[in-house]
Design a protein around this nucleic acid. Structure first.
Length: 239
DNA sequence: GGCTTAATAT
DNA sequence: GATATTAAGC
Protein backbone atom coordinates (compact mmCIF):
# COMPACT_ATOMS: atom_id res chain seq x y z
CA UNK A 1 0.00 0.00 0.00
CA UNK A 2 1.45 3.25 -1.06
CA UNK A 3 1.07 5.06 2.17
CA UNK A 4 4.08 6.72 3.62
CA UNK A 5 4.08 8.39 6.97
CA UNK A 6 0.34 8.00 7.11
CA UNK A 7 -0.03 9.83 3.84
CA UNK A 8 -1.86 8.56 0.86
CA UNK A 9 0.58 8.97 -1.94
CA UNK A 10 -0.42 9.98 -5.40
CA UNK A 11 -3.63 11.83 -4.81
CA UNK A 12 -4.47 13.59 -8.04
CA UNK A 13 -4.80 17.29 -7.61
CA UNK A 14 -5.76 19.88 -10.19
CA UNK A 15 -4.53 23.38 -9.50
CA UNK A 16 -6.13 26.32 -11.26
CA UNK A 17 -4.59 29.76 -11.16
CA UNK A 18 -4.00 32.40 -13.79
CA UNK A 19 -0.72 33.38 -12.17
CA UNK A 20 1.98 31.06 -13.52
CA UNK A 21 4.26 31.80 -10.62
CA UNK A 22 1.64 30.71 -8.14
CA UNK A 23 1.01 27.62 -10.20
CA UNK A 24 4.64 26.69 -10.10
CA UNK A 25 4.95 27.25 -6.40
CA UNK A 26 1.84 25.27 -5.67
CA UNK A 27 2.98 22.49 -7.94
CA UNK A 28 6.30 22.28 -6.17
CA UNK A 29 4.79 22.18 -2.76
CA UNK A 30 2.17 19.64 -3.73
CA UNK A 31 4.80 17.41 -5.26
CA UNK A 32 6.74 17.69 -2.08
CA UNK A 33 3.65 16.40 -0.33
CA UNK A 34 3.64 13.46 -2.74
CA UNK A 35 0.56 14.47 -4.63
CA UNK A 36 0.21 14.15 -8.35
CA UNK A 37 -0.39 17.56 -9.76
CA UNK A 38 -1.93 18.90 -12.89
CA UNK A 39 -1.82 22.63 -13.34
CA UNK A 40 -4.05 24.80 -15.40
CA UNK A 41 -3.79 28.52 -15.98
CA UNK A 42 -7.31 29.18 -17.06
CA UNK A 43 -10.52 28.12 -15.46
CA UNK A 44 -12.41 27.25 -18.60
CA UNK A 45 -9.71 24.88 -19.69
CA UNK A 46 -9.58 23.37 -16.26
CA UNK A 47 -13.29 22.85 -16.31
CA UNK A 48 -13.14 21.20 -19.71
CA UNK A 49 -10.40 18.90 -18.63
CA UNK A 50 -12.13 17.98 -15.40
CA UNK A 51 -15.30 17.19 -17.23
CA UNK A 52 -13.67 15.21 -19.99
CA UNK A 53 -11.54 13.23 -17.64
CA UNK A 54 -13.79 12.46 -14.79
CA UNK A 55 -12.34 9.96 -12.40
CA UNK A 56 -8.84 11.19 -13.06
CA UNK A 57 -8.82 13.82 -10.39
CA UNK A 58 -9.46 13.63 -6.69
CA UNK A 59 -9.28 17.24 -5.68
CA UNK A 60 -9.29 20.73 -7.13
CA UNK A 61 -7.55 23.80 -5.83
CA UNK A 62 -8.70 26.98 -7.51
CA UNK A 63 -7.81 30.61 -7.29
CA UNK A 64 -10.69 33.02 -6.81
CA UNK A 65 -9.71 35.80 -9.17
CA UNK A 66 -9.17 34.71 -12.71
CA UNK A 67 -9.66 36.56 -15.96
CA UNK A 68 -11.75 34.06 -17.87
CA UNK A 69 -13.92 32.66 -15.16
CA UNK A 70 -14.56 33.56 -11.58
CA UNK A 71 -13.28 30.90 -9.21
CA UNK A 72 -16.69 30.71 -7.62
CA UNK A 73 -18.25 30.00 -10.96
CA UNK A 74 -15.85 27.13 -11.44
CA UNK A 75 -16.66 25.93 -7.98
CA UNK A 76 -20.33 26.05 -8.81
CA UNK A 77 -19.91 24.14 -12.06
CA UNK A 78 -17.85 21.45 -10.43
CA UNK A 79 -20.36 21.11 -7.65
CA UNK A 80 -23.11 20.79 -10.24
CA UNK A 81 -21.59 18.28 -12.60
CA UNK A 82 -18.81 16.59 -10.79
CA UNK A 83 -18.45 15.44 -7.30
CA UNK A 84 -15.08 16.73 -6.39
CA UNK A 85 -13.88 18.51 -3.30
CA UNK A 86 -12.78 22.01 -4.18
CA UNK A 87 -10.45 24.20 -2.22
CA UNK A 88 -10.58 27.91 -2.88
CA UNK A 89 -7.52 30.05 -2.68
CA UNK A 90 -6.99 33.78 -2.67
CA UNK A 91 -4.77 36.51 -1.36
CA UNK A 92 -7.91 38.18 -0.20
CA UNK A 93 -9.04 36.85 3.14
CA UNK A 94 -12.07 39.02 3.66
CA UNK A 95 -14.56 37.09 5.66
CA UNK A 96 -17.26 37.78 3.13
CA UNK A 97 -15.16 36.13 0.44
CA UNK A 98 -14.33 33.19 2.59
CA UNK A 99 -17.98 32.87 3.46
CA UNK A 100 -18.89 32.96 -0.17
CA UNK A 101 -16.46 30.16 -0.85
CA UNK A 102 -17.83 27.99 1.87
CA UNK A 103 -21.46 28.64 1.07
CA UNK A 104 -20.81 27.81 -2.54
CA UNK A 105 -19.52 24.44 -1.53
CA UNK A 106 -15.78 24.86 -1.12
CA UNK A 107 -14.37 22.47 1.40
CA UNK A 108 -11.55 24.77 2.40
CA UNK A 109 -10.21 28.23 1.84
CA UNK A 110 -6.50 28.82 1.59
CA UNK A 111 -4.95 32.22 2.01
CA UNK A 112 -2.08 33.18 -0.24
CA UNK A 113 0.74 32.80 0.19
CA UNK A 114 -0.09 29.20 0.82
CA UNK A 115 2.26 27.40 3.16
CA UNK A 116 3.16 23.81 2.57
CA UNK A 117 1.89 22.77 5.96
CA UNK A 118 -1.56 23.70 4.80
CA UNK A 119 -1.29 21.36 1.84
CA UNK A 120 -0.10 18.33 3.73
CA UNK A 121 -3.52 17.45 4.99
CA UNK A 122 -5.77 18.38 2.13
CA UNK A 123 -6.14 14.75 1.17
CA UNK A 124 -8.43 14.46 4.15
CA UNK A 125 -11.03 16.43 2.26
CA UNK A 126 -11.13 13.65 -0.30
CA UNK A 127 -11.59 11.02 2.32
CA UNK A 128 -14.22 13.09 4.01
CA UNK A 129 -16.15 13.70 0.85
CA UNK A 130 -16.02 10.23 -0.57
CA UNK A 131 -16.27 8.56 2.80
CA UNK A 132 -13.36 6.45 1.66
CA UNK A 133 -10.22 6.66 -0.31
CA UNK A 134 -9.27 3.73 -2.44
CA UNK A 135 -5.72 3.19 -1.35
CA UNK A 136 -5.58 0.13 -3.48
CA UNK A 137 -5.58 2.33 -6.51
CA UNK A 138 -2.04 3.09 -5.57
CA UNK A 139 -1.06 -0.48 -6.13
CA UNK A 140 -1.03 0.63 -9.69
CA UNK A 141 1.96 2.80 -10.11
CA UNK A 142 2.30 4.86 -13.18
CA UNK A 143 5.32 4.37 -15.30
CA UNK A 144 6.65 5.11 -18.71
CA UNK A 145 7.39 2.31 -21.08
CA UNK A 146 9.98 2.71 -23.78
CA UNK A 147 7.45 4.09 -26.21
CA UNK A 148 6.69 6.95 -23.90
CA UNK A 149 3.21 5.63 -23.51
CA UNK A 150 1.70 5.82 -20.14
CA UNK A 151 0.60 2.48 -18.89
CA UNK A 152 -0.76 1.26 -15.67
CA UNK A 153 1.51 -1.20 -13.99
CA UNK A 154 -0.09 -3.73 -11.75
CA UNK A 155 1.77 -4.73 -8.66
CA UNK A 156 1.81 -8.16 -7.04
CA UNK A 157 -1.95 -8.04 -6.69
CA UNK A 158 -2.90 -10.09 -9.73
CA UNK A 159 -6.39 -9.85 -8.42
CA UNK A 160 -9.71 -9.65 -10.14
CA UNK A 161 -10.21 -5.96 -10.61
CA UNK A 162 -7.50 -5.46 -13.13
CA UNK A 163 -7.84 -2.37 -15.20
CA UNK A 164 -6.53 -2.89 -18.65
CA UNK A 165 -5.28 -0.73 -21.40
CA UNK A 166 -3.41 2.44 -21.82
CA UNK A 167 -4.67 5.69 -20.55
CA UNK A 168 -5.15 8.58 -22.82
CA UNK A 169 -3.54 11.68 -21.51
CA UNK A 170 -3.88 15.38 -21.90
CA UNK A 171 -0.75 17.37 -22.54
CA UNK A 172 -0.94 18.85 -19.13
CA UNK A 173 -0.86 15.46 -17.54
CA UNK A 174 1.99 14.26 -19.66
CA UNK A 175 4.00 17.24 -18.72
CA UNK A 176 3.27 16.68 -15.13
CA UNK A 177 4.20 13.04 -15.19
CA UNK A 178 7.57 14.18 -16.39
CA UNK A 179 7.90 16.75 -13.69
CA UNK A 180 7.26 14.08 -11.12
CA UNK A 181 10.84 13.21 -11.60
CA UNK A 182 12.32 15.88 -9.44
CA UNK A 183 13.40 18.78 -11.57
CA UNK A 184 17.05 19.55 -11.25
CA UNK A 185 18.09 23.06 -10.54
CA UNK A 186 19.84 24.56 -13.50
CA UNK A 187 22.40 27.13 -12.50
CA UNK A 188 22.01 29.71 -15.21
CA UNK A 189 24.54 32.52 -15.31
CA UNK A 190 21.79 34.68 -13.90
CA UNK A 191 21.28 32.41 -10.96
CA UNK A 192 24.97 31.91 -10.48
CA UNK A 193 25.46 35.65 -10.43
CA UNK A 194 23.05 35.97 -7.55
CA UNK A 195 24.87 33.18 -5.86
CA UNK A 196 28.22 34.93 -6.24
CA UNK A 197 26.74 38.18 -5.02
CA UNK A 198 25.46 36.49 -1.92
CA UNK A 199 28.81 34.88 -1.25
CA UNK A 200 30.66 38.16 -1.63
CA UNK A 201 28.14 39.91 0.54
CA UNK A 202 28.72 37.39 3.28
CA UNK A 203 32.46 37.20 3.02
CA UNK A 204 34.12 34.00 2.01
CA UNK A 205 34.45 32.57 5.49
CA UNK A 206 30.84 33.24 6.38
CA UNK A 207 29.45 31.94 3.14
CA UNK A 208 27.55 28.82 4.18
CA UNK A 209 24.62 27.33 2.31
CA UNK A 210 21.89 28.56 4.60
CA UNK A 211 23.01 32.18 4.59
CA UNK A 212 23.58 32.15 0.88
CA UNK A 213 20.17 30.74 0.27
CA UNK A 214 18.55 33.34 2.48
CA UNK A 215 20.26 36.19 0.71
CA UNK A 216 19.45 34.87 -2.73
CA UNK A 217 15.75 34.68 -2.02
CA UNK A 218 14.95 32.39 -4.89
CA UNK A 219 11.65 30.66 -4.52
CA UNK A 220 12.05 26.91 -4.60
CA UNK A 221 15.80 26.94 -4.17
CA UNK A 222 16.68 24.76 -1.22
CA UNK A 223 19.61 24.83 1.10
CA UNK A 224 20.64 21.51 -0.38
CA UNK A 225 20.66 23.02 -3.84
CA UNK A 226 22.93 25.80 -2.69
CA UNK A 227 25.13 23.40 -0.78
CA UNK A 228 25.55 21.28 -3.83
CA UNK A 229 26.40 24.23 -6.00
CA UNK A 230 28.83 25.53 -3.45
CA UNK A 231 30.56 22.20 -3.30
CA UNK A 232 30.82 21.95 -7.03
CA UNK A 233 32.37 25.38 -7.12
CA UNK A 234 34.85 24.63 -4.37
CA UNK A 235 35.84 21.45 -6.10
CA UNK A 236 36.74 23.11 -9.33
CA UNK A 237 38.51 25.91 -7.52
CA UNK A 238 40.82 23.35 -6.01
CA UNK A 239 41.40 21.64 -9.31
C1' DG B 1 18.07 18.09 15.58
C1' DG B 2 19.64 21.25 12.35
C1' DC B 3 23.47 22.52 9.78
C1' DT B 4 27.78 22.05 7.06
C1' DT B 5 30.91 19.38 4.66
C1' DA B 6 32.78 15.20 2.67
C1' DA B 7 31.76 11.26 0.04
C1' DT B 8 29.23 9.03 -3.13
C1' DA B 9 25.52 8.34 -6.53
C1' DT B 10 22.89 9.60 -10.65
C1' DG C 1 30.43 17.28 -15.62
C1' DA C 2 26.67 19.05 -12.97
C1' DT C 3 23.62 18.33 -9.46
C1' DA C 4 21.47 15.24 -6.00
C1' DT C 5 21.66 12.36 -2.16
C1' DT C 6 23.67 10.23 1.67
C1' DA C 7 26.84 9.92 5.42
C1' DA C 8 29.61 11.83 8.76
C1' DG C 9 30.86 15.28 11.93
C1' DC C 10 29.89 19.53 14.54
Amino acid sequence: MAVSEDFPVGLRVMVVDDDPVCLLILQRMLHQCRYRVTTCSCATQAYTMLRERQDTFDLVISDVYMPDMDGFRLLELIGLELDLPVIMMSANGETSLVMKGITHGACDYLLKPVRIEELRNIWQHVVRKKGTFDFNRDNCSIDWDSNKTLVEVQSEDHGSRKRKGNIELSDAMIEDANSLKKARVVWSSELHKKFVNAVNQLGIDKAVPKSIMEIMRIQGLTRENVASHLQGLIRLLKA
